[in-house]
Design a protein around this nucleic acid. Structure first.
Lengths: 118, 118, 118, 118
DNA sequence: GTGGTCTAGACCACA
DNA sequence: GTGGTCTAGACCACA
């Protein structure tokens, strides 16, 4: 995996795993790699993986069980809503910035549609 | 002004001034506040203002004249293009993230339009 | 049984069994489940049950008889005192924490009574 | 400072600072020691202090500003409620455990009052 | 100087 | 083996 030098690695790992939960590479209740194995796979320090896991657990997406490993949460609703949650988050930021640039609602939609279809 | 803790203050100041250039609060050739005055006004370290001015100058949006202070560039074209430049930049980022979430082009446009009009 | 992620499972099992001794679900001299059976019932690693039994035995609440299994102690006094022992233990901790929060004796009693009756 | 070997140091530091906010040793908006200084004072690794600060920030009790240091939150309400928040938390746990031991409401209050006044 | 991140490596409790 | 914590030390962006 290639990491973007400008964003903290543990954040990038969190984003990666969230995307995997969205596209089904990681499913409900599934065991995820151990801290040590994943650190070898990604060629990253184990404490960096642990940081990512700890924050994902705080956000409710995974659960860690001492001695047993870490698992995607059993909370199906939480995983199902993940795509919506993330889309809302980034859309809100984007809309805010576009408003600040002076776009009104309809011109922003027109602009965006053209940009996407281009 | 309230600063977002997670983004460098000098970046936030640059963004603020760019927005002012777009909406006309800052116009072509206009003198901008001295580093000292602006740092007092924003309650921010002078070196932070200096950094913001330095980078804005490197990007061509302001010019420093020795002994006279700093001014918005005379290059009207540059200011006029600012809105377009920023819009393109943030739109590109947004589209990329939406693609990563699994949206295709049309569903992304639908989603966005609903979100804006809601 | 749902286990609290933050407390060692063997501790939680010990607590469970102590509570059962207090409320009579487990009585003096009664045979308790084998390590194997109990581990299946609770869906827990057998070594975890073993650990719980070992510590309960060290504390005098259960006894292992070779070839016969494990039994609640015959020492009635020990079981009878269990409720008192645990109540003292957790009360001591609680009072200590409330003192650290700045409660004095009477205000702590008032607060507690209101909280319980609420 | 003496640390209890059984509880994570960063947790103990968090508890210490919360108590200081309650008793007024740390007041609203006040600068708290830098990570490095506090680590020297408590003879603890800087990353351990940082972990404590990071979690306190996540809970809303302090704010860290890059290059400027860390500060008790300006949110007076949050600090004012801290004593109540903590008291509720530990009381809820205590009451739950006493119920499990078979105490009813009034007997629990009696028991507690005697224990405190003893 | 100050906070934020990361590494390499260690030790512990637990399963 | 697995996660949790901690240390010693480094480098970076920022003020």
């Amino acid at each position: 995996m290639d990491f973007d030098n400008k964003i903290a690695i543990y954040i990038q790992i969190m984003d990666l795993m969230k995307r995997q939960m969205i596209n089904g590479d990681l499913t409900i209740g599934q065991k995820i790699p151990s801290v040590r194995n994943y650190s070898k796979e990604l060629k990253v320090n184990p404490t960096t993986i642990q940081r990512a896991y700890r924050e994902l657990e705080a956000e409710g997406y995974i659960e860690s069980k001492r001695g047993m490993g870490s698992f995607v949460t059993q909370d199906a609703e939480c995983i199902n809503r993940l795509k919506v949650t993330l889309a809302e988050e980034i859309s809100k930021e984007y809309i805010e910035k576009m408003l600040q640039l002076g776009f009104d609602e309809e011109s922003m939609i027109d602009y965006f549609a053209k940009k996407v279809r281009r």
